[in-house]
Design a binder for these strands. Sequence first.
DNA 1: TTTCTTGGTAAGCCATAACTTACCGTAAGT
DNA 2: ACTTACGGTAAGTTATGGCTTACCAAGAAA
Lengths: 106, 106
Amino acid sequence: MAYQEIFSALADPTRRQIFEHLRDQPKTVGELAKGQTVSRPAVSQHLRVLQDAHLVSVQPQGNRRLYSIKREGLKELRDYLDCFWSDAFSAYRAEIAKVMDEKGKE
Amino acid sequence: MAYQEIFSALADPTRRQIFEHLRDQPKTVGELAKGQTVSRPAVSQHLRVLQDAHLVSVQPQGNRRLYSIKREGLKELRDYLDCFWSDAFSAYRAEIAKVMDEKGKE
DNA sequence: TTTCTTGGTAAGCCATAACTTACCGTAAGT
DNA sequence: ACTTACGGTAAGTTATGGCTTACCAAGAAA
């Protein structure tokens, strides 16, 4: 359904780098821009795209905005990939994934 | 490493549709083009990109070329996604995936 | 209340990528 | 041998998307 946005969001190398930087911990726009060669507005625009793809989320904290990874988009992507394993293991995999998602929420 | 090619290969909607059409069974270029609104050369070009991303493979059969899905690229992508589940379940997931790949090869 | 920081948005530029038509090589069919 | 089917490649066009600078709004700090 929303594969389009997710795939194209992660297709850009700069955007993927930003996304990866969020893997360790939530960061502000300024922090993210510091690790990038592109300008801060560019980072803002990338974050917008990632947000639309449900790959990151924000919480404003006074002056700044703290971005963090949101696994929702990733989960969708994983489900998409899974349906290319057409054998019985696909279902098995899906089940495992489901269980782990539950755990992951804690 | 080669995430770039894989992500951008699947980011294009037409290309993804072609890829999905191969899910059921291997097909020739003509067959794939028939299900598409774009021209046959366009399909050829898309297949080239998918091939570079290790998402499809070809075997020539006389006059025609039979394209089929190659899970190598998908596997790489899945591994990439897995490393965003940073908890202990990531390792577990990876193990499961490995086992299932082995099984899948049969 | 100024001033500085933080960050989103607008406008415009430019490179890339997806498409087209035209062409060519090769294998089958007649 | 000729013709038709199949499909890859070249060249050119156009739209999209990633970048920049400039600008603006809102919260801290002075």
